[in-house]
């Protein structure tokens, strides 16, 4: 099996719920071993796409092949080789932490000794061994998410699908989860994730698509997307809120591009410090000035005219 074997191939993929079109014709190819991300705001169609790939939602149009099979006909066979970590925790609250893994493993047809062995390994992997006998409702959000990740790995999936894996987690919990996902990636597990956090996409994804209102607006590696759709640096300026438009006109020429946000101006330029200096020399005194590297947030803002976080 070559490194460029496609695990997911979507062409013109569509999904409608009644009159609402959630996914409006997307082309995606995910190759074995890569970490692939869908970046976009809430409601962009990321989760709908994930559900179709996970063979739990029939496509409304286009073609879709997952692991070389058709999800409509071969759902069970596809699902037996996928790991799914949904956005909302679907842990079984009537079972203990360890029982959640045991029962789930049995759904994949694993023998009892095998599933017991894997459950203990996975509890260690997500650092939950000491909570094995706890009831699920006693766990914090971060621990629940870790258990969900462990559960999704019980069948040793070829591709792990994570829908907004760190939404709602505190920074420490996020970093621990990122670390575990990074290890999986190094072991050769293909990762497919959705996120509306640009730092998450930058940390984890080899390649990603930016998705907005059901269509793909850009595709590439994080670095490549920033290169193609933004400048190297950004100068963030905050003035008194009432005169942003007037100020914007005066400093427009200082950068390659300028964005006016409700609370600040963003000037895109190769050299952010030079912009900051030129602003001061022009007689303007912003309340605060911040020079930083461009991120995927800037890419998204440029491509859609909207912020990811909203």
């Amino acid at each position: 099996m070559g490194g460029d074997e496609a695990l997911v191939e979507a062409r013109g993929l569509r999904k409608s719920y009644g009159a609402v079109e959630a996914v409006r014709g997307i082309d995606v190819t995910v190759r074995r071993g890569e970490a692939f991300g869908f970046l976009g705001p809430n409601g962009a169609g990321k989760s709908s796409t994930m559900r179709m790939i996970a063979a739990v939602s029939p496509p409304s149009g286009g073609t879709l092949r997952v692991l070389g099979m058709d999800p409509t006909d071969d759902g069970p066979a596809i699902r037996s080789r996928l790991g799914v970590c949904p956005q909302e925790d679907t842990l079984d609250s009537e079972l203990t932490v360890r029982e959640n893994l045991l029962v789930y493993g049995r759904f994949f047809g694993l023998s009892r000794p095998e599933v017991a062995r894997r459950a203990d390994e996975l509890l260690a992997f997500v650092q939950l061994s000491d909570r094995a006998g706890a009831r699920v409702e006693q766990l914090s959000g971060g621990l629940k998410r870790r258990l969900t990740v462990a559960r999704s790995l019980i069948n040793e999936p070829e591709m792990l699908m994570l829908d907004e894996p760190t939404t709602g987690l505190d920074p420490q919990a996020r970093h621990l989860l990122w670390d575990r996902l990074f290890r999986l990636k190094q072991q050769g597990t293909t990762l497919l994730l959705t996120t509306h956090y640009m730092d998450e996409a930058e940390q984890l994804c080899d390649r990603l698509v930016v998705i907005d209102e059901g269509v793909i607006v850009a595709e590439g590696s994080p670095a490549q997307l920033i290169r193609d759709h933004s400048s190297r640096e950004v100068c963030e300026l905050r003035f008194g809120a009432d005169d942003h438009q007037g100020v914007a006109e005066r400093i427009q020429h200082l950068g390659e591009r300028l964005e006016v946000l409700p609370d600040r101006l963003l000037v895109y330029a190769a050299d952010g410090e030079a912009v900051a200096q030129a602003v001061h020399e022009g007689g303007l005194t912003p309340r605060s000035t911040l020079v930083r590297r461009s991120t995927l947030e800037d890419v998204f803002l440029h491509l859609t005219g909207r912020s990811l976080a909203e």
């Binding site: 069970p76 066979a77 699902r79 037996s80 949904p86 909302e88 079984d92 609250s93 759904f107 994949f108």
Partner: peptide, 12 residues
């Protein structure tokens, strides 16, 4: 509980 949502992510 959404038990069945989790169950249907498996071969069941």
């Amino acid at each position: 509980e959404k038990v069945y949502d989790a169950v249907l992510a498996t071969p069941l």
